[in-house]
Nucleic acid binder design. Sequence first.
DNA 1: CTGTTAGCGCCTTCAA
DNA 2: TTGAAGGCGCTAACAG
Lengths: 375, 375
Amino acid sequence: MVTIRDVARRAGVAPSTVSYVFNGSRSISEETRRRVQEAVDALGYHPRASARTLRSSRTHVLALALPRAAGLQDSVDGRFAIDVSDAANGLGYDLLLTTSQDKAEGLRRVALSGLADAAVLMAVDMEDARIDVVRELAFPAALIGRPADEDALPWTDLDWEEAAALAVRELAAAGHRDMVYLAPGEREVEGRRSYALRGIAGARRGARTTGAAVTVVHSVADPARLADRLRTVLGNPDADAGDGGGAGGAAGAGRGDGGGAAPTALIVQHPSAHHHILPSVTATGLRVPEDLAVVVIGTLPGDPASRALPRVELPVETLSFEVTWLAVAAAARQREGGAPSVTEPGARLLAESVGHLLIPPVLLPGTAPLAPPRH
Amino acid sequence: MVTIRDVARRAGVAPSTVSYVFNGSRSISEETRRRVQEAVDALGYHPRASARTLRSSRTHVLALALPRAAGLQDSVDGRFAIDVSDAANGLGYDLLLTTSQDKAEGLRRVALSGLADAAVLMAVDMEDARIDVVRELAFPAALIGRPADEDALPWTDLDWEEAAALAVRELAAAGHRDMVYLAPGEREVEGRRSYALRGIAGARRGARTTGAAVTVVHSVADPARLADRLRTVLGNPDADAGDGGGAGGAAGAGRGDGGGAAPTALIVQHPSAHHHILPSVTATGLRVPEDLAVVVIGTLPGDPASRALPRVELPVETLSFEVTWLAVAAAARQREGGAPSVTEPGARLLAESVGHLLIPPVLLPGTAPLAPPRH
DNA sequence: CTGTTAGCGCCTTCAA
DNA sequence: TTGAAGGCGCTAACAG
């Protein structure tokens, strides 16, 4: 184990000088710097993180709090984890994963034991228990997701509400009067997942704005059951009444002049349905886009399977970078007692002062056009 | 900041006593224990990880080295990250993500700065640079993936080779004489990704064993190009010669009595193709399973989109647990100077002594049967 | 521009 | 069954 003292001895300087060479907080003569560097290379010295942290009470580690809802987790989570890790590295931080089980236990433990300087909270609910935890502990944190209390903590998110409203508006502009909004599953709504509620609210708003009829249906993981629900709500003429069953999660919504006509458009917000939505629709006997226009919301960028459809992508990389920046800024603010540092122009400055950053949705064209309805 | 001394003072004991209460390595009177606990609760004391680590040189942190190949990463990676995190938590460890960019830089830094006790390496290549790094640094590590040198480090993996061979055998037993093996993309093969090479080797072995003709085709991310390649190799009668183009990644292989007949079965090993393989096949005009039997290898458990097909699932949870265990065991071995600890029976003991654990593939039935060929 | 020094909070040997 | 004390490796005052 080679320490700073070994280096100092070999370079013929004091340990503190070696430290300053590393931390660069005071001027060092070129000669001294060179000799220290030489000793470092010769001995293969590398500072111990624990000693540094104990002394400076800075870890240069960010905690990433994953939700870890029992059962299947979306591939979205992993994608965020990787991109946040990259962003953190770029800012000189490492990333510690905390799959907080119950009551944000992991997050609390990480904060209390000083394992991280700040936390990034993923997949937040409208009222998220983890928010209370970090506030109670005065632990710097930033969220991916827009909580009910928008001023409690810095956050960033895709504007899911506007994304849904935008999809409805565009479809209405193309002539569609009757649409179906395939929202995340019931459980996500009951769990008050932010993106789920915002998306549905946007769909309703779009319906009001355009006068189109928008029926909100909740998605299900199982493709067969999903096809059932779609069959029911899309009112396919030659439905062969497969498994029968109830009307599923159809929840009436949207007022407009569309009345009870058969829907001509489908908006899909459920992440895990993105991949098999097309087969599920095809299973109902409808052709896309001739019989039914399909728009997808929240797809992963670069996902080949969803490039065919018109869609609003989830800007994972941007969100990851911004939330990381917000978390690091929060840590800095806490260290310096609240003085906001003005280091970057533009959106970032805004994000820091306002405390959040809402990313406007962009509707990308798919291979298949936004076909107008047939009647 | 409440320290161990504050607790000691309030409980009327020495700091060391408090420490022993936490670490339980010597007997404490019930009375003392109670008073310490009371003080801990009252003051909200929590030990500092950095101080502990500095003193004990144990971090209780595992590093997870993700490959981070430029461009799109599979959702598989994220899934592993989460499951390894859970497994680590179960063994009393936290998980630090290192998205090692070039030359395993992140991993090296984490090891050198003592941020972790051991590493888990994901998505290993046959000859992986990270293996050299951890060996050079004598840093305990375990791999998810089976490297060329099987004895260099402990590892665990699905037996991809046997999985592919199994699929060929089962299809051959069902009467198929001509098959297509859709392997991972050319880049993954050139990068000598372990699972890619093993899978292809297994397909070849299956061909030899059964006498069936197996053509190996490399997958592509883009669904349209994939459909093209499939059209070419599956020799669809009513192919409308879409984009023309070359024969794509078709690489002749497999000897047998199948000769040049049209393939009746398709085996898919490319993870990112799993989701849209069915549409891509349908796009060629072939019906599944009437015209073409499809078997998928390496699907994620619980993925609703792939439940329909016969498949070999990737046992993410098992692999994650085992590799975590191997990594922790390696750390313990290093601490204790090589003495193998005998704490668990069965497979785990075996895994520890042999140093690796190869999981045998299981072919699960899909909704669609393994239809026999028509001719 | 550089050296000396005093801990950061904890664990663990040694002593009682 | 418990205390006292030293030091893990590093940083940040203070001196010069």
